[in-house]
Amino acid sequence: AMTADGAGAAPRGSPEASLDPDHLYNVLFVGDSHVGKTSFLYRLHADTFNPHLTATVGLDYQIKNLVVDNKRFALRLWDSAGQERYHSITKQFFRKADGVVLMYDITSEHSFSDVRYWLSCIQEGAEDGVAILLLGNKTDCAAERRVPTKEGERLAEEHRLMFYECSAASGQNVSESMVSLIRLLKAHEDKLKNKAEEVPKPPQKKKGCCW
């Protein structure tokens, strides 16, 4: 059971936008250029496909409110530029992410082989417990598929990643994958909390709440 509403569409300062969510997560979208990161976010926000999106320069931002399992979640979504030149900029933001969505294009072997490179970036830059979702986009282009589902699954298993194939164009698995990611993020959060309670005197490290 899930209801979704994009706070971005709500008028600024509406009660809904200022409504306090139960949980707030920062999610960074990475992957090669042109795999469909911005299109995915557009679909999530407006529930349509926009074939006329421009290339992302630097970073883009979006907020998405979702109700999952009767709890209100707010996702701060960070959309990054795919081109290699920008990676050093993107990398600065790994540290601040609770979750990373690593996207490739199922019609591009190159984008799939770069997944390993992106994973090493995440390992290097992100916190240890970061939740990672591997997404193979463009399932609507079945005729041009170059990366079999099995290979995606195998890679996800090898690195213990959550995995979905999706299509920003058709909408397939767009909200589903986000809901699963939210559950994963929630589980991570709970685990961290329990750990904190187990240890008698944890070093009170304040996690930057706003960034």
Partner: peptide
């Protein structure tokens, strides 16, 4: 005036669009 009333993500979203 608008920006002073917004939080981080809304400012970022507003300024990039």
């Amino acid at each position: 005036d608008i920006l002073t009333k917004m939080d981080f993500i809304h400012i970022a979203q507003f300024l990039t669009k």
